[in-house]
Nucleic acid binder design. Structure first.
Lengths: 199, 199
DNA sequence: TCCAGCATAGAACGGTCTGTCCCTTTTAGG
DNA sequence: CCTAAAAGGGACAGACCGTTCTATGCTGGA
């Protein structure tokens, strides 16, 4: 668990690394996250990334593929962060508290605009859609991380504890975006503390 | 409080009621909620509502205005529901429980696709945007309803209790859409029960 | 009855979006 | 150094989008 390396898989052909590609994903991440996915055209992304049209379509099958790269980048980043915390903190209680602190700090950061996955799912509701499924995969993974931690903690019902923390996380993400981030952070930390204490 | 009539305000000119207008708002609500706002064009809405182009633009300033009508309709509906509950149940504990049950049932209903307001905010991130502000107004109202209830309940810190319940609500909305609705419902009911009991 | 106002039908507009294609220039590896 | 791949820079098509306009049909109230 927590390897953070299971969603890789790419076509065997190809490019995989390139300055232009990195610039595209970076710019797309900034714009998609900041202004919404459907609200930003690939023209905009290409222009701000200083990448020509042909180059874009050599690296990506189309916009959806770029969106997928954006979300998978965010996913990778979060998995790496969680893995780093897990490596550093062995106790499940400490791990959960650290994760909560990480989220709390995130929602209070400048430019926080909600959870990229929740937001993406709002724009791609079709369960069959690749992007929607990317969101579901990320969420399933994170839930499993929490279930595992509460199991190691010896919680009477790991699943319910994990779901409660998941709800607190999601609620904090929403409130951090559409309400008072400081209060949202406090609610999350307080709630997770209670969950861990209650076991 | 709970009057449910404070966000009305329309141009004094005008139409306000008409079969065509009602059909437009109804169709738009169904499509915007089910497929996302930016993913649905006004062409589609007009076609499925069997309303001509000119008629649409006589009733609405443009797409944004239609989106506003969609969200204000949802807002009105929720305010009416909350007002009905408040009228029926006098005790604050019973009121909060009833609200939680209402939300829990909602997320378990067929065709639930998340909170219309959270979803709309994901598509319209600009705080200056009319639609974004409509979302914020709805959320501010609902939070105030909760704060008031917890105050009447005699909670030591009304605000924190209200924010906790708000986080649970938001988390349940997200999880009901992107996870297991039954589990989300259980988490919400359990959490609100605890909040009310803890006072 | 007549007419004002609302609804309809349909064409047309400019703009933007995704995606394809072509050609030239730059870059990097053998 | 030479060549093949990558990147740049456009032009372009086709679709859709939101919007405006005109001409016409329908209906309810004075």
């Amino acid at each position: 668990m927590l390897d953070g390396m299971s969603t890789t898989e790419e076509v065997p052909v190809l490019i995989r690394r390139s300055a232009a590609r990195d610039r595209l994903v970076g710019t797309a991440s900034r714009l998609f996250y900041g202004e919404g996915i459907r609200g930003v055209g690939v023209d905009r992304v290409m222009a701000e990334a200083d990448v020509a049209r042909g180059t874009f379509y050599r690296h990506f099958d189309g916009k959806e593929d770029l969106v997928r790269a954006y979300l998978e980048g965010a996913d990778r980043q979060i998995r790496d962060g969680v893995a780093a915390v897990a490596k550093q903190i062995s106790s499940p209680a400490g791990f959960l508290a650290a994760v909560a602190h990480g989220i709390g700090d995130e929602v209070c950061g400048a430019g926080f605009r909600g959870c990229p996955f929740i937001n993406a799912a709002a724009e791609y509701p079709d369960p069959q859609n690749v992007i929607h499924q990317t969101v579901l995969r990320h969420r399933a993974w994170f839930r499993e991380v929490l279930v595992d931690a509460f199991r190691r903690l010896g919680a009477t019902s790991h699943e319910q504890s994990a779901d409660s923390m998941m709800a607190l996380r999601d609620g904090t993400m929403v409130a951090g975006y559409l309400g008072d981030a400081q209060r949202a952070r406090a609610v999350l930390l307080h709630g997770v503390t209670a969950l861990v204490a209650a076991r």
